[in-house]
Simulated scan of single mutants.
Amino acid sequence: MSWNRRHVLSLADFSVEEYNTVLQTASSFREVLTRRTKKVPTLQGQVVANLFFEPSTRTRSSFELAAKRLSADTLNFAASTSSITKGETILDTAKTYLAMGTDMMVIRHKEAGVPQAIADEMDRLNVKVGVLNAGDGQHEHPSQALLDLFTICSLMDVEKPRSTLLEGKKIAIVGDILHSRVARSNIWSLTASGAEVHLAAPPTLLPKEFADFVKTSNPEISRKLFIHWTLEPALIDADFVMTLRLQKERMTSHLLPSLREYHQQFGITRDRLKLCNPDVRVLHPGPVNRGVEISSDLMDDPVLSLISQQVTSGVAVRMALLYLMGGGKVG
Rank of each mutant, 00 (worst) to 15 (best):
E220V: 13
A66P: 08
S258P: 05
I90N: 08
R60H: 15
D212R: 14
P203V: 01
S28Y: 12
A112E: 07
H228T: 00
D148R: 08
A145E: 03
S295N: 05
L283G: 06
G137I: 02
N76R: 09
Y97F: 15
G45V: 04
T25P: 09
F150V: 03
T81H: 13
Q138P: 04
E232Y: 02
H7S: 12
K128W: 12
E111T: 06
V311Q: 03
E261A: 09
G314D: 03
F150A: 00
Q116T: 12
E159Q: 15
R60V: 03
S313M: 00
K224E: 08
V315M: 09
K274D: 10
K208R: 11
V47G: 06
R35P: 13
S80E: 14
L298A: 04
F210W: 14
Q310F: 05
R281C: 01
T102V: 11
L283I: 01
Q46K: 15
R108V: 02
H284T: 00
D271Y: 11
R5T: 12
F53G: 05
H228Q: 01
H109R: 05
D279R: 15
S305M: 02
A211I: 14
R58C: 11
I84K: 11
S296H: 10
K110N: 08
L324Q: 03
A119G: 04
I294D: 07
A320T: 01
P161Y: 06
F63K: 07
F150K: 09
E121W: 11
S253A: 11
R281A: 02
L147A: 01
S308N: 14
G130A: 12
W3L: 02
E220R: 15
A238V: 03
